[in-house]
Design a protein around this nucleic acid. Structure first.
Lengths: 144, 144
DNA sequence: TAAAATTATATTGCGCACAACATAATTGTG
DNA sequence: CACAATTATGTTGTGCGCAATATAATTTTA
């Protein structure tokens, strides 16, 4: 490992970038069986917690804007996991709600999580430390 | 924080996904001044280390395939930072080499790195621990 | 050495990701 | 109440990221 600060090996940003891709790749075959992509899975995670949410709320939870979410949600609707309907009280809002099929999917997603958990294979304390570090880095970057 | 294992807050994959986006967003305005996107910057990191490399070598270093690299490298060529020329010894290979302009760019990239380093603002030991953890997770995922 | 297998790169199609812009509904202010 | 500002979502254009496929050059093998 060189001491050049610009060396790929010395870059936290690349370690994160590569790990993120590795996760996406590991999830892909499992999620394909559920008819989901990885970002679609993240949206479903939000909905499994909240049951229903506006587009903006989902965007805030995941850090995505409408340019990403609008077409993604249409695809999720076409697949049949969500419903999109304009709010009565505020016609600007589009409320996203789980369909029965979307609710049922949660059980199968838990199996996917179990499989990935085994693949990662590091103990909970290490994982927690990693997540804390990542969140701190993220916060610092977003505040700066 | 809930105890639901499917909760967004409890997912290492999302912490990594979000941190990766945060990095890209932090880099974007700085790299735009250099005429680079973030993935293009990663390619330049490889070339600043190696001076020249085949498409496959760059792909191996970054974990990207030709479907991603082919058009990306054409854009880098159009910007003027690299040259693409078929290898004489093996006509299948396209060798990517830095132009003078690409070599010179490294100095400015070091300033970008300094700015980002300040934004992250965590000490080197913590950063090293983070990188080690991420690499372990990545290795486990790729082996599984 | 001719045919088969492999290797290196390119292309196409789909799905993010985001900036920039557009539109419609709501809220705030005079 | 009119009208400006804000809010929520959608659309367009550009650039990844990758699977699937194509093509040409090289190597292996029969």
């Amino acid at each position: 490992m060189t001491d050049d600060p610009l060396s790929l090996d010395n870059q936290l940003c690349f370690a994160i970038y590569a790990a993120s891709h590795a996760f996406t790749k590991a999830y892909r075959p499992l999620l394909t069986e559920l008819g989901l992509t990885y970002p679609q899975y993240l949206v479903m995670l939000v909905l499994w917690e909240k049951r229903a949410a506006s587009v903006t709320e989902i965007g805030a939870a995941l850090g995505l804007d409408t340019g990403t979410l609008s077409p993604l949600l249409k695809r999720l609707e076409k697949t049949g996991y969500i419903r999109r309907e304009r709010s009565r009280e505020d016609e600007r809002q589009v409320m996203i709600a789980l369909t029965t099929s979307g609710v049922i999917l949660k059980t199968r997603a838990q199996d996917v999580l179990k499989t990935i958990g085994q693949a990662i294979g590091c103990d909970l304390q290490q994982m927690q430390a990693l997540m804390d570090g990542l969140r701190r880095v993220r916060r610092n970057l977003e505040e700066a």
